[in-house]
Amino acid sequence: MPMRMEPSGTVVRFDEVGFAYPAPGGGRGPEVLRGMSLALDDGSFTWLLGPSGAGKTSALRLMHAALRPTRGAVEVLGVATGPAARGALPVLRRKIGVVHQDLRLLPHLSTFDNVALPLRLARRPEARVAQEVTEMLTWIGLEHRAQARPEELSGGEQQRAAIARAVVSRPALLLADEPTGNVDAAQARRLLALFAEMNRLGTTIVIATHSEDLVGRFPAPMMRLERGRILDHDE
């Protein structure tokens, strides 16, 4: 893993952000995020809390440039995602690691190849890909499952593989949506320790969860959402 980098400013900035998904019949549906304003510093660790439907996943997708705001401004790693050209977003996304709630491992690829995807997209030499993926799988305890396909892995192993894929390229920003949802308490603690280690090494981390228990194990700034609005954000 790299040496810790010194914080250099704001990584994520929301300014009066609103977002509404397209309505089935055309136009836009009701806003799921309303008037969100926030600023996350480089190297910070933030818990994104709130009940189901509060807007946590939509907020993470805006931070990942997988969605564009329908009003207000979103700036991630210095890129204003709203007005940015479509061709500029892939470069931004390669700097962001994401752990989706539904994991989204490619079923026809082995664990090794799933984890290698971001490195291959970045056109790293294959020898380096092999070395870094092997290191990552060892670090996350999946080295013996490298050639197994996702369907052959347990829920916890799949979760760890998804996390390994998100962090293998050492992203500047890591977004995780309920990353411990499928694992037992011991496994959850292990994953949390992994995120803490990454954060110590300089990665800005945002983890969405509705588990207050998980938050209690790793005290960090919390942002609480409810019905698309930020209730409170302690920094």
Binding site: G87, R93, R104, L121, R165
Partner: peptide, 16 residues
């Protein structure tokens, strides 16, 4: 389509 969406989210360009 799911795999394409994953590659897109990982930062693959349309060209790739």
């Amino acid at each position: 389509q799911d795999s394409v969406a994953v590659l897109h989210q990982l930062g693959a360009t349309d060209r790739e």
